[in-house]
Amino acid sequence: MTAQTIRTVGLRAGSIVALLVLWWLAARLMHDPEALPGPIVIGNTIAEDLVKPGPQGESAFLHIGITLARIFIAFAASMLLGTGIGLAMGLSRIVERALLVVIPLLLTIPTILMVFLAVMWFGYSEAGGLIAVMAVVTPYVAVNIFEGTRAMDKSLIEMGVTFKARRPLLIRKVYLPQLMPYIFSAFRYAFGVTWKIVALAETFGLKYGIGYMFFFWFGQFNMDQVLAWIIMFVALMLILEHGVFARLESRAFAWRHSLAR
């Protein structure tokens, strides 16, 4: 680790600790454990949830695993589809013209309405959640990638064409590397929206998952558990975002870091 990474890690840890201290102080001052339990109580609740079976007998890890699987599938599907559509728009005038009308329409529909629509069409099913995510995220990803194709360096494409590179080779070696910054910015947004919609869908009616547990405890009006599940969820997403994506991103841009300057 370099001095710089130690400093960033220290800063992040420091700000989390500061937040916990603030929370603890607020809980002390309010002195109303029904409304705002302190961090220590919630910490214990989380630990208990993780080791003991839940109220219906399932382990917390089952719910976490199911939520993760739902997020991953919906996310991967909308990223792939969105990147494909964006690329097609960038490469073909016809696709561009056809979709530039439709996509802004889809983007205008508020996310929560999309979830309701999906539920009305597909019921409280896995497909409903998946489609809600895809309907919201895919157009956004497509628009981003399309913007990226416009910013591509035409002279490099011309170079490739001059040397008779075919489409698949051009896509792999010339288009996609130039689109990487756009893909990653879409990636972050897509991930953020995906887990919010999945949590929403789980809250509204899917069986199992973190959102489901959240809603279960909400029904019991158990503030300790509600907070515990929220925190588990947030922690999980932060780990994914910083642990997994940041690493993927730095690998994708390895060629930049290798520069001597």
């Binding site: 490739g160 590179a165 080779l169 060629w255």
Partner: peptide, 20 residues
């Protein structure tokens, strides 16, 4: 030069070899 900056020098040459 119109090189692909994300590929190594070797990768740049292999790009046209593959293309051809």
């Amino acid at each position: 030069p119109r090189l692909l900056n994300w590929l190594t020098v070797q990768g740049n040459i292999e790009f046209v070899l593959e293309a051809q």
